[in-house]
């Protein structure tokens, strides 16, 4: 990683107008705010349907912005990129595709995989709040095991998402398997780390993928004030691991020396309330987190 950005270095310029429709304490818009700060005004945003697309209505972005269909962000970007190229205007703009976890891991996976495989020069940002939040918090391919969502509710028989944790769709690893030149995970708990990774992505000639963990008070039924805290706790408990992957090598950021107990993270979220007394599930989660930390640092 190149020089680390400090808070004082950051521009005071904002690229989103006030009055946007994001919920109080929204993690995704905090991520989007800093991503645009990192990229600056010469950026064209292609935004798939999702929370951000709805929130961007009423001319919130100050940069060229195109709200596209749920699954064709990367394909639309491919057209923009190849058009700018043939018109001799390719260097004018960063091309940023933005989508949520559903738009990326589920419905848009084909389009993303194709655009990366073709090697277009763009940055893909997935804001992962682990459910289809725009439509009310239905379960997605990245919803964690145990989480209560509107389509994996807590019932008397089945309690929350019962698809095992290790079967959760791990998009950053999928992108690494594509030999994507630059893959990074980030979290709104560490905005400066996110900004540095976006700046790094902007220097890559070819596709780069950034997966930003972004809390969602509405969907997780957490306090709006805890959005940044939760995004840090997710890292401190090992639930998510911050890393960069480039030239076949992985470097880690904010790797917890001593992992906090998973329960510290779960107890601040309504979607996990039904698990707090379930010692066996908590055991399994601790085990999963340890195994994964081991595997990812292999």
């Amino acid at each position: 990683m190149t020089k680390k950005t400090k808070i004082k270095d950051l521009t005071d310029e904002e690229f989103l107008h006030y009055g946007s429709l994001s919920c109080a304490g929204c993690g995704a818009i905090l991520a989007f705010r800093h991503v645009l700060k990192a990229l600056g005004e010469n950026t064209i945003v292609i935004n798939s349907t999702g929370c951000m697309a709805v929130v961007m209505q009423m001319a919130v972005p100050k940069i060229p912005y195109f709200h596209v269909l749920f699954e064709n962000g990367p394909a639309v970007m491919s057209g923009v990129e190849q058009a700018l190229d043939i018109l001799g205007k390719r260097d004018d703009a960063n091309l940023l595709v933005v989508a949520g976890d559903g738009g990326t891991a589920d419905i848009g996976m084909g389009s993303l995989s194709g655009a990366v495989e073709r090697g277009h020069d763009f940055i893909y940002l997935c804001y992962d709040n682990e459910s289809y939040m725009n439509t009310g918090g239905q379960r997605s391919g990245t919803t964690p095991f145990g989480a209560a969502t509107s389509t994996t509710p807590v019932g008397s028989v089945i309690k929350g998402e019962n698809r095992p944790m290790e079967m959760r769709k791990d998009v950053p690893e999928i992108m690494i398997a594509h030999n994507t030149p630059y893959v990074a995970t980030a979290s709104i708990g560490y905005p400066l780390d996110l900004i540095d990774k976006v700046k790094k992505a902007a220097t890559i000639r070819g596709p780069s993928y950034i997966h930003v963990f972004s809390s969602c008070p509405a969907g997780w039924r957490s306090e709006p004030k805890d959005s940044v805290k939760l995004a840090k706790l997710a890292v401190q408990t090992g639930f998510i691991v911050l890393f960069e992957h480039e030239d076949g090598k992985r470097t880690f950021q904010h790797l917890p020396k001593k992992r906090k107990p998973v329960k510290d993270y779960l107890e601040l979220q309504g979607r996990f309330q039904h698990l707090l007394e379930d010692r066996e599930t908590i055991e399994k989660m601790e085990e999963f987190v340890e195994k994964r930390l081991e595997w990812i640092q292999r």
Binding site: H17, Y18, G19, S20, L21, A24, Q57, M58, A59, V60, K62
Partner: peptide, 17 residues
Amino acid sequence: TLVFEPGWSEDNLTGAW
């Protein structure tokens, strides 16, 4: 509700929330 100027959202005073 149709948008003609950039930053049309700024009419939406979210402070009221």
